[in-house]
């Protein structure tokens, strides 16, 4: 078992607290099959350092896990980590989580930043080698974004957030609209653009997201696109409550 990053500095009143979904991502990315897959693609130490992008970092627990255990996962420690989140408080919290994890790692990797933005809209095309997303996946009405700007910072002249503000910020972390897929579908549409030719993506889905349909849809993006479930939890009567889908392109040759 690789160490789980500390998130004790994070205020879970307004930033998503690591839960079963977060831990499923950690377990899947560090599973022997995924480590073998990642090492096969990226461990050649003379190639460029892989860029890991996590969208929706929340507390930063997942990105920090990758940054802190880069050597175990990739077989090299010159790995770059970058994050985004729509919630500015999460951006600040996650930066600290990643930096703390790197500081306590014997083989420090290289952390870039966490930027405040919508999905991967500010990321250069074809630059991401490993993409990770634990989306807001619960079928629940999307929050009312009209007050995002005012809720995304401390109220003017105040030192604390309001209760309404915190509720809004937490809603952003779970509410996924119809089938819980509205945000995920927007993200899936960006994946072919941001991935490098060798790039792969890990996206978490829940049973209500209709994962079989989602995978079928990804396979129809074009020749070579693959999507497989590579981790799952909460098996009940043949139903996986949560699963991680790996998305990648078959490299020709």
């Amino acid at each position: 078992m690789l160490p789980t990053p500390s998130t004790s500095h994070v205020s879970f009143d307004r930033v998503y607290e690591p839960a079963e979904d977060s831990f499923l991502l950690l377990d899947t990315i560090s599973s022997s099959t995924e480590v073998a897959f990642l090492k096969d693609r990226f461990s050649n130490a003379t190639t460029h350092p892989p860029l890991v992008l996590e969208v929706g970092v929340g507390s930063g627990v997942v990105l920090a896990f990758v940054a802190g255990n880069a050597d175990n996962i990739f077989g090299r420690h010159d790995v770059l980590t970058l994050g985004t989140d729509i919630n500015r408080f999460a951006c600040q919290a996650a930066s600290q989580t990643v930096q703390t994890a790197i500081a306590s790692s014997a083989q420090p990797s290289v952390f870039l930043d966490v930027v405040n933005g919508d999905l991967a809209s500010s990321i250069r095309h074809q630059s991401v080698d490993v993409f990770i997303f634990n989306p807001p996946y619960v079928p629940a009405e999307l929050p009312d974004f009209s007050r995002h700007d005012s809720y995304n910072a401390l109220p003017a002249g105040k030192k604390a957030t309001t209760f309404e503000q915190d509720s809004y910020l937490l809603e952003l972390s779970y509410a996924g609209g119809e089938d819980g897929m509205v945000v995920t579908n927007r993200m899936l549409a960006q994946i072919p653009e941001i991935l490098s030719p060798n790039g792969i993506a890990y996206v978490l889905l829940c049973a209500q997201n209709k994962p079989e349909d989602v995978k079928k849809n990804i396979r129809s993006w074009g020749p070579g696109w693959l999507a497989e479930t590579v981790g799952s939890s909460g098996k009940k009567a043949g139903w996986e409550k949560l699963q991680i889908v790996r998305i990648w392109r078959q490299t020709s040759g």
Binding site: Q92, D113, V115, N116, D118, S121
Partner: peptide, 17 residues
């Protein structure tokens, strides 16, 4: 795009609809 306290903000009004 504004950078405040080291965090860059790439949110656009159009994103949030």
């Amino acid at each position: 795009y504004q950078v405040k306290e080291g965090v860059a903000n790439f949110l656009l009004p159009g994103h949030l609809v």
